[in-house]
């Protein structure tokens, strides 16, 4: 009798102790962790934005650093969520057997995976906000009040890429496997979705492909907010991000149940 591992998630507030566990570990190394997470995207943003930007007249009608700032928020949030569920999540699931310890308590795997999802989204929110603070300090945003709307979008981006990354975590035999995800999914997405240059610069076929990728929709929300405009087709973009995250979470949960509970 084959059990169906892909039944709907059973969600409960029992995920909170899992979230708190990860938060407590993070808190011990919070300052170096924030600086470490921030340094890389910030250097790219400032280096390329001012360095490369000085060679360009303007991109999409604004200075390159301003254009790049919105991309960096999305890119940094995506990376933070992805790294957390892939490398840290895999440590907890496979290497340290933290999940196994938790499953011997009244918590279920559904609680654990939900806790990981929400934790990774939380951590990526911190990364997104850290970049935003730099952006505010440099006054790169057109309107401070409008740019505050970027914060809920960052939550959505974190949710989306945590859900997607958890699928990789569920099927990975080792850390090395994650390299495929980065080279085949994350890096192409960064290049195709308008982080560094407008999607409109690409061949129409690539532009069409980009419309199906979640990072494009993240940037379509964040960039107008950075440039002082209200985004168009807000619900479409929100829906795509939610759908990628939710489908990812559902698949990840089913695959993880199959991996650990069979």
């Amino acid at each position: 009798m084959a059990r169906n591992y892909f039944t709907p998630p059973v969600l409960s507030l029992r995920f909170i102790p899992v979230w708190r566990r990860n938060y407590l570990v993070w808190k011990k190394l919070a300052i170096p962790a924030i600086l470490g997470n921030l340094a890389d995207p910030m250097l790219y943003m400032l280096g390329l934005g001012y360095g490369l930007g000085s060679l360009m007249p303007s991109v999409a009608g604004v200075p390159y650093i301003t254009f790049l700032a919105a991309g960096t928020v999305c890119y940094s949030t995506m990376n933070s969520a992805t790294f957390e569920v892939l490398y840290s999540g895999f440590s907890r699931m496979h290497v340290q057997k933290t999940w196994e310890a938790i499953l011997n308590t009244p918590l279920t795997l559904d609680d654990v995976v939900l806790g990981e999802l929400i934790w990774a989204a939380t951590k990526s929110l911190l990364s997104g906000i850290a970049i935003l603070v730099i952006i505010w300090a440099l006054q790169l945003q057109a309107s401070f009040w409008l740019s505050l709307w970027i914060i809920p979008v960052v939550v959505l981006i974190g949710f989306c890429f945590s859900g997607m990354g958890l699928v990789m975590n569920a099927v990975s035999p080792s850390y090395d496997f994650f390299l495929y995800y980065f080279t085949l999914v994350i890096t192409p997405m960064v290049l195709l979705c308008g982080v560094f240059f407008p999607v409109s610069q690409m061949h129409p076929v690539l532009q069409n492909i980009a419309q199906f990728l979640p990072l494009t929709h993240a940037i379509n929300l964040v960039r107008p907010l950075m440039l002082g405009n209200i985004p168009t087709q807000v619900w479409l973009h929100v829906l795509v991000l939610v759908a990628y995250g939710a489908v990812g979470f559902y698949l990840a949960l089913g695959l993880t149940r199959k991996r650990l509970l069979s």
């Binding site: 029992r14 102790p17 899992v18 708190r20 566990r21 407590l24 570990v25 011990k28 340290q96 057997k97 933290t98 196994e100 310890a101 938790i102 308590t105 009244p106 918590l107």
Partner: peptide
């Protein structure tokens, strides 16, 4: 499968919370 990031005391605290 103790939590290597935590002290002895923290291991009890974190694990106890899983039981509510």
């Amino acid at each position: 499968n103790l939590d290597p990031d935590f002290s002895v005391l923290e291991n009890f605290m974190v694990y106890g919370r899983y039981f509510g």
